[in-house]
Design a protein around this nucleic acid. Structure first.
Length: 423
RNA sequence: GUGGGCGUAGCUCAGUCGGUAGAGCGCCAGGUUGUGGCCCUGGUGGUCGCGGGUUCAAAUCCCGUCGCUCACCCCA
């Protein structure tokens, strides 16, 4: 075979795609219940949108974007995340003029050029929610609550919610200085990465996975203990709401989100069922993003979650079995003279919303029966010349193994009675 | 970008000291001339990742290369 799928991309084969349908449908339905409306944006955007929105110093922008020039010389980028694109669309179409608060959701592929590993692909898929237009903690809670609800609805129980506040324009600079003061004497003992971040992004240092770094930063000052009044109030308010909504959470002062645009609330849903890529989803408030993109100040909050990771966790949750759909009826021809006639009956069933399958290979009855069994059909309809002359078919219950002759005119009615989901 | 592990049938894998490739599952057919599953019998299926080297002879040894995978960094 000459051609292979690109490194870090995956074909979604029929043996797996039904699982995707399952989680996607659940998300669409839940979004409707929470009154979020879907937004779809193009897979690529001007590179500048992400560079500005996500932050020049982030790893995503620095080394992970799929960037290319089109024939006109524009620099374009396959979207590495969705929030910047959603805010762009929000500003471009003045959604804020139509209603004060926009509740948007999406389900879309993202692209980042990293080394693939468990739970990380170059083309991956995220579900996401954004509430744009309100600074209130109720919006933060709404995002978190629906995400928690989604996992619960799927039967995933081994998830934990961690929340933090990363402050705002007012209180973050002061905190940053305090943190640097704390780190400065330890600087030479820190890992190389952390030393490099000291100037560019010191907040990330307390989030380091390096063991030595962890020891050294154990007693580091945390943003959540140095919030301004407004941020502090927002954070306690959020916790009050989460408790009221019965969502379990833990405050973790070391959660620092990787993207520049976050303010106040930052959170992650973590699962122990994943490998080292343990974040199932993450999000937070991003009150500065719209302005950064050239719009006015528009407060907003959102979440993004990985579908691939979700499915990995789902497979390990015993109480979350997903069943593959199968045809309700298989129609088998006992001889060649009945095949076309039987195909007409097949279509009658389909028009009556009965999922069914028939042989397309002119195979023997035995082979057709085997196929019916393999495909897990609940019933098999068998007919040859004899049945055709009497205008009836043999209806066989595959599980029980018994069968009876029924008039063709009554077939749909009988099957519908047996298959309530087809009505 | 760095490091470990692995590439043999559609899938999971075995293959000894170098002697020209196997099992289980799957698929197809028959055992039953109009009936699935279980069982039995037979069959289909391989560029041993790719290229080069050593050798009378390479899946096996050597060199290179590509791919997959896990981990680091970071993230969903």
């Amino acid at each position: 075979m000459k051609f292979k799928s690109i490194t870090g991309t995956k074909d979604l084969l029929p043996g797996e795609s039904y699982r995707w349908h399952y989680v996607e449908e659940k998300f669409h339905k839940l979004a409707r219940r929470y009154n979020f409306r879907e937004i779809r944006t193009p897979v690529f955007e001007h590179t500048e949108l992400f560079a500005r929105g996500i932050g020049e110093l982030t790893d995503i922008v620095g080394k992970e974007m799929y960037t290319f020039e089109d024939r006109s010389g524009n620099s374009l980028t396959l979207k590495p995340e969705m929030t910047a694109a959603v805010v762009r669309a929000y500003l471009q179409h003045n959604l804020g003029q139509q209603q004060p608060v926009s509740k948007l959701y999406y389900l879309a592929p993202m692209f980042r050029q990293e080394r693939p590993q468990k739970g990380r692909l170059r083309q991956f898929h995220q579900f996401g929610l954004e509430i744009i237009g309100t600074p209130g903690a109720l919006a933060d809670a709404e995002i978190i609550v629906m995400t928690a609800d989604y996992y619960a609805e799927l039967g995933i129980t081994n998830v934990k919610l961690k929340i933090n506040s990363v402050g705002c324009e007012k209180c973050r600079p002061g905190y940053k200085e305090k943190l640097k003061e704390f780190l400065r004497p330890k600087l030479s003992d820190l890992s190389e990465d952390s030393r490099r971040r000291f100037e560019t992004n010191p907040l990330r240092i307390i989030d380091s996975k390096d063991e030595r770094d962890r020891e050294l930063t154990e007693k580091a000052p945390l943003q959540k203990d140095h919030l301004c009044n407004e941020c502090n109030e927002h954070f306690t308010h959020l916790q009050d709401i989460l408790r009221e909504a019965d969502v379990e959470y833990a405050v973790d002062g070391k959660i620092v989100r990787g993207l520049d645009y976050y303010t106040k609330t930052a959170f992650e849903f973590i699962s122990s069922a994943l490998g080292s890529q343990d974040a199932l989803s993450g999000g937070g408030r991003y009150d500065l993003l719209a302005r950064e993109l050239g719009g006015k100040n528009v407060p907003a909050v959102g979440v993004a979650g990985g579908i691939e990771r979700l499915l990995l966790v789902l497979e390990e949750s015993e109480n979350a079995a997903v069943e593959e759909p199968h045809p309700a009826v298989y129609l088998a021809a006992a001889d060649d003279t009945a095949r076309i006639w039987l195909y007409g009956i097949t279509q009658q069933l389909r028009r009556n919303n009965i999922p069914c399958e028939t042989d397309l290979m002119l195979r023997s009855l035995k082979a057709q029966m085997r196929e019916a069994s393999r495909q897990n059909a609940a019933y098999t309809v068998i007919a040859g010349a004899e049945e055709r002359n009497k205008n009836e078919v043999v209806l066989k219950d595959m599980k029980a193994g018994d069968q009876q002759n029924v008039p063709v005119d009554e077939l749909v009615h009988i099957l519908q009675k047996q298959l309530p989901e087809s009505k």
